[in-house]
Amino acid sequence: MTSFNKSNLLHFGVLAGLVILFFILPTYHVGVLSRVMVMAIYAMGFNLLFGYTGLLSLGHAMFFAAGMYGFGLAIKFGGFPVPAAFVVGVLSAALLALVVGLLALRTAGVAFMIVTLMFAQTAYLVVLYFGKYTRGDEGFILQQAERSLFGLDVTTETGRYFTAFTLFAVCFIALAKLVQTPFGKRLVAIRENEERARMLGYDAGRYKLYALVISGAVSGLAGVSYALLFGYVGATFSTVQYSIFPLLWVLLGGAGTTIGPFIGVLFMFYLIDISSGYTNAYMLIAGVVLVLLTVFAPKGIAGTLKARVFPWMP
């Protein structure tokens, strides 16, 4: 079997597995999985920029929040129907990513990390400053009636699970295809050796900007999905912590692999879920995992599997 067929099989196997799990898992875990799939969209968006293009942003929470608030505020104050608000949310994130990209991509390396961190911090403070509309840290709730998508009730366990599943599946397959296109391969080339890519005639700056905009839009879509499915919009999602999470997930699962982000989110969710039963200092686990990963397994779970066992893995 060719590696192309194997990777297709892997991708559809994961999706089929998620459908089956819905019918065999207890309700509690179905709820967790819905959340995991939404956050996996976020992680996949981050992965396109970090894992494939080699750009480490420490401010992705601003894109997640742009999607979330773009969607939430369009419903709350614009009176938009859900599908239109959905588009508004994703476009807000993409536009923000475009502006941030035009500025931040003038820098590289450590400066890029700090600049994105600073922009995200600015965005967080802006959310707090306009507390009259955003309700700041407290956030606001989107009522069940405000969240009907084409007549579908996304507040039931089933509706929520399969909406999350559909959004996840679309992003998962689309991004897996994208990184196999010439465009995706050029992003990898830039990650591997930007100067070389430029001296092969590729406009590295433009490719990085495209990657950032797509990455921001997908992260924003995750924010929209969260607001849609869980009915909550709040400033917590624009804090530094939510910029660190996707980095943690992607590193844990395996940067630059299609399946890594999902694995990372799944592991981390259950790790925190279990540990928060014992202590309120559950972020300690996140810290320990980050340090252990950087020192011992910089390729993450999927990356290590790919290097040691399944070289065909996408």
Binding site: L58, M283, L284, G287, V291, T294
Partner: peptide
């Protein structure tokens, strides 16, 4: 950077 982020959480928590 990633390692020091990890250290941040370890010390804080």
């Amino acid at each position: 950077i990633v390692a020091t982020i990890g250290m941040l959480y370890i010390i804080q928590q």
